[in-house]
Amino acid sequence: MNRVVALRAGPAVAEPMVEVRGLSKVYPGGVEALSDITLNFPKGKLTTLLGPSGCGKTTLLKIVAGLIPASAGEVSVGGRKVTGPGPERAFVFQDFALLPWATVLRNVAFGLELRGTGRWEREATARRHIEEVGLKGFEDAYPHQLSGGMRQRVGLARALAVDAEVLLMDEPFSAVDEQTRRKFQEDLLALVAGKGKTFLFVTHSIEEAVYVSNRIVLLSRRPSRVSEIIEPDIPRDLPPDRIRRHSAYIDTVEEIWQGLKRYLE
């Protein structure tokens, strides 16, 4: 294979925002989902977890979110050990997880509502983020009146509204159609570039991973370990079509596919 750009593996240069040390997870019933995972997620970057289905990506993300406890090892965010959910982390759900009885405005403001932020302030913040994700004019709509792509924008706006430093996204675009998805990916790139937030991203799509990620962590089959870390060396300031035709993009996609193929049988 003719590789134009070298792929750098190994530790990232940026300071780590999320540190995972010796993490293992055995579910009650004996399913060993994760086995001794050690990983850093650099600050201000988007790191993608990629691996065969059922390898424990969601599990890892939920442990980082503080939603489920680890069996061994620990996670720290910004230097502080994770013992439960915290305001510095926000989750974007695969199935959106919107309140069906609440308007877009209330859904986006929900995190702030839980924190006890006053109504006027939280709604002003929510309106700002609704506009940011391109849903201006839909503040009073209900989730069932929106398309899948729009619903996920609401989910994203809700995560942005609480102004968390770490955004945890579990296959956020898998339930939206292909065109919407591409638009999402472009918006996500802009978000990563503009916000300085740290993103932990899970996807099944190799192309998506290579397109949006600063760093891709390949996980092996369950019980999963880190099998490889890839940092695609793609100039992010190119227009979307140039990125998708860039040789580094194409080569990286191919390399990851070769790496993952052996887990399929």
Binding site: L67, A90, F91, D95, W101, L114
Partner: peptide, 29 residues
């Protein structure tokens, strides 16, 4: 109540009482 809705409430910092009043009660209505 869908598990992701209760995870959502939890991850955005809802305590048991808030989850009860703002999510479960309403979802189970």
């Amino acid at each position: 109540v869908s598990p992701s809705l209760s995870e959502m409430a939890q991850s955005y910092g809802a305590g048991p009482l808030q989850a009860f009043a703002k999510v479960y009660l309403r979802a189970a209505l």
